[in-house]
């Protein structure tokens, strides 16, 4: 019961709003947030893919160093970094232990270490880029690189509707709680209580399915009258929407600097 209550407290509407506001506004003053989304995409498309195919540990470590610097400038919270590192190390560790069962030895350690570094570089690259972009930048960027208008609409719609949906879910869940009856015995390891709450969490979706269906109908009708179907199919609307996007000097400088660093790595270590 205690557990369920804590969980529902976490899911309060105000809390969700705070979280959303945080991700939406949180980082607007950092360097990366001022870059054009295209710059970040290009940058990420390199550091998010190539590490897979590099096996030189020095180059990878050099890249990792670079990523640590960028994450520092992106003001990523140390907690996220810690969780990420622990997760990756744990994954590598469990692989190692199981590998030992299958006749592995210390020679297994090195490839695993390289793999972990690779994964780290890739994750840090994506954190740098995607934590720096606010949702508007991200959806504009996606629109610019040719992702259909429906996707950027959906991102906006998500931000619009989430608090409403959470509130409704919260109310329905509470109705279940107040009118239902939690098991009196907690069961072994709280099993009964947990399964009761999980069942409620699942059943609460039945009412939500119906009410969201009603919502969707009005929304789509409104979209029709607001010309969104027209907008999705006309390139000039896209142009109008994206007229603020512009590659600036700092975009080029950032890309060039990154490139030079990578070149340097290759020249020295290959």
């Amino acid at each position: 019961m205690e557990y369920g209550r804590k969980w529902m407290d976490k899911l309060s509407v105000e809390q969700v709003k705070i979280e959303l506001l945080h991700t939406a506004y949180g980082n607007s003053d950092i360097f990366f947030a001022k870059l054009d989304p295209r710059t970040l995409f290009i940058w990420y498309s390199y550091f998010g893919i190539t590490p897979w195919f590099l096996h030189n540990e020095y180059i990878l470590l050099g890249m990792l160093l670079f990523m640590l610097v960028t994450t520092y400038f992106a003001k990523i919270s140390p907690l996220i970094m810690l969780i990420l590192s622990l997760g990756l190390l744990g994954q590598g560790g469990s692989l190692l232990i199981i590998a030992l069962f299958f006749g592995g030895n210390w020679a297994t350690l090195m490839p695993l270490f390289i793999l972990t570094v690779k994964l780290m570089v890739i994750s840090l690259a994506s954190i740098t880029v995607f934590c720096s972009m606010n949702p508007t930048q991200l959806s504009n960027g996606l629109l610019k690189i040719g992702v259909p208008g429906q996707v950027s609409f959906s991102i906006a719609y998500g931000y619009r509707m989430l608090p409403t949906l959470v509130e409704e879910y919260h109310h329905v869940f509470q109705s279940f709680r107040l009118r239902g009856k939690a098991p009196e015995k907690r069961g072994f390891l709280y099993i009964r209580t947990i399964s009761y709450f999980v069942k409620l969490a699942v059943m609460s979706f039945y009412p939500l399915l119906l009410s969201t269906a009603k919502r969707a109908r009005t929304t789509v009708e409104a979209l029709e009258t607001k010309g969104s179907m027209y907008g999705f199919n006309h390139p000039e609307v896209k142009k109008l929407k994206l007229k603020t996007l512009k590659m600036k000097k700092r975009d080029y400088l950032f890309l060039i600097a990154s490139f030079l660093y990578v070149v340097l790595l290759f020249v020295y270590f290959y």
Partner: peptide
């Protein structure tokens, strides 16, 4: 596949291929 791509000559590393499949 990711591990296969990410680790150079996966087959040559003792125990790793088996462990990833097992996990």
């Amino acid at each position: 596949l990711k591990v296969w791509v990410g680790v150079e000559e996966l087959e040559a590393v003792p125990g790793l291929a088996e462990s990833i499949v097992a996990i």
